[in-house]
């Protein structure tokens, strides 16, 4: 059995979702290749070649692959599947966009967001906002899988696989890229960060979110997250949303500030190692999952936390 892993990257650097997905793939087979598809992403392919356990790296480049068009990804991957029994893609918004297309073209089910591999055809995945775990066995000849990367440890570096360039597919005829506005940030990537500080509706404005949440995150070297309510209200950009239908995080430390702890939010953070909640309502559901709860107004608590961290040498 041979497995193809589709790398997560931004054309400049490889994201650690890739190493985590390789770990999942190695549970299926020892023959794991990585596909790096994009534009100007040779350095990414070289980085992927260093992942321990990777047999070969395939590199495909074109403008449309760089733009991440789903039609182009499908056209690239489907013919490659003649050589593979399974394809694993990190369940990022990009992966979720194109992976079902590969499944539909191959006429197989997609097994979405697996958190565990039982055997070559049996997988565990969360359903109902993570309130249940479903173990499914696939009868399909080829497996098309997206992987919840936070559930797997990153495969280490130390390999030296060969990078092989392959042809990119033709431009899709009916889908046209217009533009892309990406938030540039010096902070760690939300899904891979060791510490995440998230703010909720309590912030009340974008200015307050920036004034309260961001300095605390920066003091801790943390990524910034948000609840849906904070994103909907425009306090934080859409890709900060943590939850069932946003990003799933599992850091060492998750700090929720002014977030009530709705089922949909918990779905995205309850696998964090240590959870801290700051909320003025002692009955907020977030306290039911928090290891450390501080019942307080964040307006007083966060400045105090900043000073306490400074006093502790942070």
């Amino acid at each position: 059995m041979a497995v193809l892993v589709i790398a997560d990257h931004d054309n400049a650097s490889l994201k650690d979702n890739t190493e985590k997905t390789v770990t999942a793939a190695l549970k299926l087979s020892g023959d794991v290749d990585v596909l790096v598809a994009g534009q100007g992403c040779k350095a990414v392919a070289d980085a992927a070649a260093k992942i321990t356990g990777v047999r070969k790296v395939l590199l495909a480049e074109s403008a449309e692959l760089g733009e991440g068009l789903a039609e182009s990804m499908e056209a690239l991957v489907v013919p490659l599947m003649a050589n593979y029994d399974a394809v694993l893609t990190p369940a990022t918004s990009q992966g979720k966009n194109f992976s079902p297309r590969i499944a539909a073209k191959l006429d197989v089910a997609q097994i979405s967001e697996i958190v565990d591999v039982v055997d070559g055809s049996t997988f565990v995945r969360p359903i109902y906002a993570g309130n249940a775990l479903e173990t499914v066995q696939s009868a399909d000849a080829k497996k098309v899988i997206t992987v919840r990367a936070t559930s797997f440890k990153a495969a280490a570096d130390g390999g030296s696989a060969k990078v092989e360039t392959i042809a990119a597919p033709a431009k899709p005829a009916k889908t046209h890229f217009v533009d892309q506005k990406l938030v540039k940030s010096a902070r760690p990537e939300l899904t891979g960060a060791k510490i995440v500080v998230s703010g909720g509706r309590a912030m009340g404005s974008a200015e307050e979110f920036q004034k309260v949440i961001e300095p605390l995150a920066d003091k801790l070297g943390a990524a910034v997250g948000a609840s849906r309510a904070a994103v909907d209200a425009g306090y934080a950009p859409n890709d900060y949303q943590v939850g069932q239908t946003g990003k799933v995080v599992a850091p060492e430390l998750y700090i929720a500030i002014g977030i009530s702890g709705a089922i949909q939010h918990l779905a995205g953070m309850k696998d964090s190692k240590v959870i801290v909640a700051i909320n003025k309502d002692a009955d907020a559901p977030i306290f039911q999952v928090a290891d450390y709860g501080l019942v307080a107004d964040y307006k007083a608590a966060v400045p105090e936390l900043m000073s306490a961290l400074a006093a502790a040498g942070k």
Binding site: T92, S93, Q94, T175, D179, Q180, L182, V183, P237
Partner: peptide
């Protein structure tokens, strides 16, 4: 809505 921000397609 994509990872990192917003993308527009036609």
């Amino acid at each position: 809505e994509v990872d990192g921000g917003l993308q527009t397609l036609e």
